[in-house]
């Protein structure tokens, strides 16, 4: 177990260093930050001084080392655009994104698993086909179209749910939560649904095909031959085997959801990291962009490690070596 975690940590550091390098390269080649930071009629000398003070004249290796060292100390630099510390900017926005993703994952798990199990076992052909077609739509509908449709229906026509913002939030030190107030819960619903559509259909289709495949396994036939009840066969013997691949997909997808949240947050004006990132892209605010990339990479790695750990716990066949 310890060795496994150690290996994972080494991998994680490697991945984060590569991402850090890419974002560092971006610093070097995308635009000139000086242009954005200084008034248009500044003298050449003022520009040079700023360049020197930002360390932009040092060698590439020196700059990269400094970049990584700073990052490791949580120092991602100063935003070019609003001149404040990048890390605190992101940390301020982090809870909104994480809560959005969390709600989206919960919705996709509950709905995806229920639909998957139902469509695998149901004998109602018409309903099954309808769900199947809807799921195709769910997979192929671009996230922004789904988001806009949701807004049109539930905010504009029915006026049930707000179309943007986080509603009332409650602060706890570094964390701010919108999940404790009614308006916050209402506000998170539409963006979370829009974000979860893809994952719901993924889980549903995967689980359905896994269940159908497991139903044909020899050990299910043998369980039937021993007279095990149909209910136990369906919900214990089959489901326990079918859920494992779903765990992996969910794990891989949670990272994807954080990335996808950029689009959702833009549509619903959700004040999370994704919105911050899109604004940063607009202003070529490279410290923010690169910090976002590095932090998302770290989250990806951490989540995947968690999924592997869960897998270890759930599947007795995997031995830690």
């Amino acid at each position: 177990m310890f060795v496994f975690l150690l290996k994972r940590a080494a991998q994680a550091i490697g991945i984060v260093l590569v991402v850090a390098f890419l974002s560092f390269v971006m610093f070097q080649f995308v635009g000139d930050p000086i242009e954005g930071m200084i008034s248009e009629n500044a003298t050449q000398q003022e520009r040079d001084e700023l360049r020197e003070s930002l360390g932009l004249n040092d060698g590439v290796i020196v700059q990269y080392t400094r970049f990584v060292k700073n990052m490791a100390q949580g120092n991602f630099g100063i935003s070019y655009y609003n001149k404040s510390d990048v890390l605190s900017l992101i940390i301020e926005r982090l809870p909104a994104t994480l809560e959005l993703v969390f709600v989206a994952v919960v919705i996709s798990l509950v709905v995806g698993i229920l639909l998957g199990v139902w469509s695998a076992y149901s004998r109602n052909g018409l309903m099954k086909n309808t769900v199947q077609i809807l799921s195709l739509v769910g997979v192929s509908l671009p996230s922004f179209v789904a988001g806009i449709l949701l807004i049109v229906v539930f905010s504009v026509w029915l006026k049930w749910l707000p179309s943007h913002g986080r509603g009332e939030i409650v602060e706890f030190g570094y964390w701010s939560s919108g999940l404790l107030t009614l308006s916050g819960l209402k506000a998170v619903l539409l963006p979370a649904i829009s974000l979860s559509l893809f994952m719901i259909t993924m889980i549903m289709r995967l689980l359905k095909s896994e269940i159908q495949e497991t139903m044909r396994a020899d050990y299910i036939r043998f369980a039937k031959a021993r007279g095990i009840s149909e209910r136990s066969i369906k919900y214990k013997h089959v489901l326990k085997n079918s859920i494992l691949p779903v765990v992996t997909i969910i794990g891989l997808q949670v990272g994807g959801l954080i990335a996808f949240a950029v689009v959702t947050e833009t549509i619903f004006q959700w004040p999370g990291m994704g919105l911050l990132f899109i604004q940063a892209v607009n202003y070529v605010d490279i410290p923010v962009i690169s910090a976002y990339l590095v932090i998302v990479a770290i989250m990806f790695v951490v989540i995947n490690t968690f999924v592997d750990l869960i897998y270890l716990l759930v599947d007795p066949r995997i031995k830690v070596s």
Binding site: A217, D218, Y219, I220, F222, A223, K236, H237, K240, N241, L244, V314, D315, P316, R317
Partner: peptide
């Protein structure tokens, strides 16, 4: 293949 792999 006759025994369920995830049950003891």
């Amino acid at each position: 293949t006759s025994l369920n792999p995830v049950l003891t």
